[in-house]
Design a protein around this nucleic acid. Structure first.
Length: 491
RNA sequence: CGGGGCGUGGCUCAGCCUGGUAGAGCACCUGGUUCGGGACCAGGGGGUCGGAGGUUCAAAUCCUCUCGCCCCGACCA
C-alpha cells in the first residue's frame, strides 16, 4: 500500500531518463521530496531570518487565490474584516491564565523602542484574542451591539523550535475570526458554522477531504472551552490539522470584562469564538496532491490554470503559430488564468517538465500541426491524458476540463484518505496499527478518559485528531458511554 | 529542547582522513545551429570554502566557539 512509484526513473522501454530530474522520490524520503518541491516550484525559499521563509510570487499567488475564495465565504456569513495591532502589551496577554501558559513559551518580545527600554514589553502577536478582547470590552455595552463578527487577515509569530516551510514557520499568514455573542447557543452555532465554512472551502477549493470534529481536552486551544477542527491526511500517511474553530466560552469575557446589558437590564458576559486557517494550507495542498513529478495544484486556486507552450521550427511556423495563438487566447476568454511561455531558450519538452513540476493543471501545446487542424493539444496534469480540442470548442471545453481536474483530484485524495482510514474496537488495536504501519487514520470507540489517549501517544506516537461529527462511516463503532475518536500520527 | 547529519560558485556535490596554486556536472552570459517530452557546438563570467577565534612558515582541510539548515523524537496553525 505504501510502495510509491519511483520518480526520475528509467523507462522500461526506452532506457531514457523520463521526467523530473533531481526530485527525490516520495516513497524514499517524503520530507525531502516536500522541501525540494516547495523550493523548485518556487513556492517559497529560506530567508536569513531563523525559521522564517519568503513566500515567492507563485506561492503567494496561490495564497491570494485561497484568501479570495475564503474571504468571500467569511463575508457571506456576515463577518467584516478589521485590523488590530501587531504588538500586544504583556499585561493584556497575561490576563487569561491558560492562554498565557499556552503561548508564553513561543512569544517573541519587543523590549526597546528607539533607544529607550520599554516600561512594559510587548509580545509580537502569536494570536490576537487578548488585544481583541480588550477592544471588545470597550465596544460592547448592550445586547443591541451583539453579535460582533470580525475577521482579521494578518501575520503572527510563534517562536517555534523546529520549523518547516509552510507547515510550521516562526512567522506565518492567516486569518483569525473573533466573534462575541449574547448566548452560548449562538456562540456554539457560530463555532460550527465556521467549521463548516472551512470544511466546504478546503474540500471544494483545495480538493482536500477532511474529517470535521471536536478535539479532546488534551488537544484543545489554550484558553478555549472546546476546539473543533478539520483534519486532512497527507500522502505520507500523517494527519494535518487544516483549520480550527474555538468555542471560547466566557473565559476571555471574564478576564477582559466584556459585558453587555441584556433586555432585562441585567449585566452579562458575552460568549466568544475564534477560528483560523493559515498558510499551512499551502503545505497541505503540496502534501495531499503532489506526486513523483512534483506539484499538482487544484485548478480553483492555481495561479496559472492553463499554460500554453507554443512550438515552432522554422520562421514561417513561428509566424503562423503566433497568429494562431491570438485566436486561441480569444477562444479561451478572460475567465481562465492562462500563461503563454514563448521563451526561446527552452525547448517544448523542457517546458512540459517544468510546468508539470510546478503543478499547472492543464497544458496546451500549440504547433504547426495544430494550426493546420485548427485545434490545440490539451494535456491534463492529474491524469496526463492528452486530447486534441478544436479551437471552436476551447471556450467551453477548457472550463469543463478544469472543473473535472478539480473533481478528479478531490476524488483521488478522498479515495486515498478512505483507504487509509481503518476501524478498530480497542485501544490495543490502535497501538498495534501504529506500531506496524505508523500511518493513516484509525477510528476507535473512546471511553472519554485521558489515560486512553496518553497510553496510545506514549506507546506509538499517535494522537487523537478529533471526534468526527459525521459518523456515517463509523456507525458500527458506536457504544453507550463512548465517543468515536480518530487517531493518527500528525504534523 | 534532546539524538544524529550537513554547511565549498545559483543548484547538486568532490576535495578534508594524510595542511601546500579551489574543482566537476548542471545552471548562467555571448554567438551559431535547434525546438511535438528536459537539444548541440564553440567561447565566457562567477566562490575571502556559513561566521569568529586559535594552532602553523602555510588552513576548505586540524582545534575551540558560534550561526543556520536537514532528519528522528518531545511541544504547536
Amino acid at each position: 500500500m505504501w510502495a510509491f512509484h519511483r520518480g526520475a526513473s528509467v523507462s522500461e522501454n526506452t532506457g531514457k531518463k523520463q521526467f523530473v530530474e533531481d526530485l527525490t522520490d516520495q516513497g524514499d524520503d517524503f520530507s525531502r521530496w516536500y522541501n525540494e518541491v516547495v523550493r523548485k516550484a518556487q513556492l517559497a525559499d529560506y530567508s536569513p531570518v531563523r525559521g522564517s521563509m519568503v513566500i515567492r510570487p507563485y506561492g503567494y499567488g496561490l495564497w491570494e487565490n485561497m484568501q479570495q475564495l475564503l474571504d468571500r465565504r467569511i463575508k457571506a456569513t456576515g463577518h467584516e474584516n478589521a485590523y488590530f495591532p501587531l504588538l500586544i502589551p504583556e499585561s493584556l496577554l497575561q490576563l487569561e491564565a491558560d492562554h498565557v501558559e499556552g503561548f508564553a513559551p513561543e512569544c517573541a518580545w519587543v523590549t526597546e523602542g528607539g533607544r529607550e527600554k520599554l516600561e512594559e514589553r510587548y509580545a509580537i502577536r502569536p494570536t490576537s484574542e487578548a488585544i481583541i478582547g480588550h477592544m471588545y470590552s470597550k465596544w460592547i455595552e448592550s445586547y443591541r451591539d451583539l453579535p460582533v463578527l470580525i475577521n482579521q487577515w494578518a501575520n503572527v509569530m510563534r517562536w517555534e523550535k523546529v520549523t518547516r516551510l509552510f507547515l510550521r514557520t516562526a512567522e506565518f499568514l492567516w486569518q483569525e475570526g473573533h466573534t462575541a455573542h449574547a448566548t452560548e447557543q449562538e456562540c456554539l452555532e457560530e463555532v460550527l458554522r465556521m467549521l463548516e465554512v472551512y470544511r466546504d472551502f478546503v474540500e471544494t477549493e483545495l480538493a482536500i477531504p477532511v474529517y470535521a470534529g471536536k478535539k479532546s481536552d488534551a488537544e484543545r486551544f489554550a484558553g478555549a472551552q472546546d476546539t473543533y477542527t478539520i483534519e486532512a491526511l497527507m500522502k505520507d500517511g500523517k494527519a494535518l490539522q487544516a483549520g480550527t474553530s474555538h468555542h471560547l466560552g466566557q473565559h476571555f469575557a471574564k478576564v477582559f470584562d466584556i459585558t453587555y446589558q441584556d433586555e432585562a437590564g441585567k449585566r452579562q458576559h458575552v460568549w466568544q469564538t475564534s477560528w483560523g486557517v493559515s498558510t499551512r494550507l499551502v503545505g497541505a495542498i503540496v502534501m495531499t496532491h503532489g506526486d513523483e513529478r512534483g506539484l499538482r495544484l487544484p485548478p480553483n486556486v492555481a495561479p496559472v490554470q492553463v499554460v500554453i507552450v507554443p512550438i515552432w521550427r522554422k520562421e514561417e511556423d513561428k509566424a503562423a503559430v503566433s497568429e494562431f495563438l491570438v485566436k486561441v487566447k480569444e477562444a479561451i476568454g478572460p475567465n481562465v488564468r492562462i500563461k503563454v511561455d514563448d521563451r526561446d531558450q527552452y525547448s517544448p519538452g523542457w517546458k512540459y517538465n517544468e510546468y508539470e513540476m510546478r503543478g499547472v493543471p492543464i497544458r496546451l501545446e500549440v504547433g504547426p500541426k495544430d494550426v493546420a487542424s485548427a485545434a490545440v493539444m490539451t494535456v491534463r496534469r492529474d491524469t496526463r491524458a492528452k486530447e486534441s480540442v478544436p479551437l471552436a470548442e476551447l471556450g467551453t471545453r477548457l472550463p469543463a476540463m478544469l472543473a473535472d481536474v478539480q473533481k478528479t483530484m478531490f476524488e483521488q485524495a478522498k479515495a486515498f484518505r478512505d483507504e487509509n482510514t481503518v476501524l478498530v474496537t480497542t485501544k490495543e488495536e490502535v497501538i498495534a496499527h501504529f506500531a506496524a504501519e505508523k500511518r493513516g487514520f484509525v477510528a476507535v470507540p473512546w471511553d472519554g478518559t485521558a489515560a486512553f489517549e496518553t497510553e496510545i501517544k506514549e506507546k506509538c506516537g499517535a494522537t487523537m485528531r478529533c471526534m468526527p461529527h459525521d459518523l456515517s462511516r463509523f456507525g458500527s463503532l458506536e457504544r453507550p458511554g463512548h465517543r468515536v475518536a480518530l487517531f493518527a500520527r500528525a504534523y
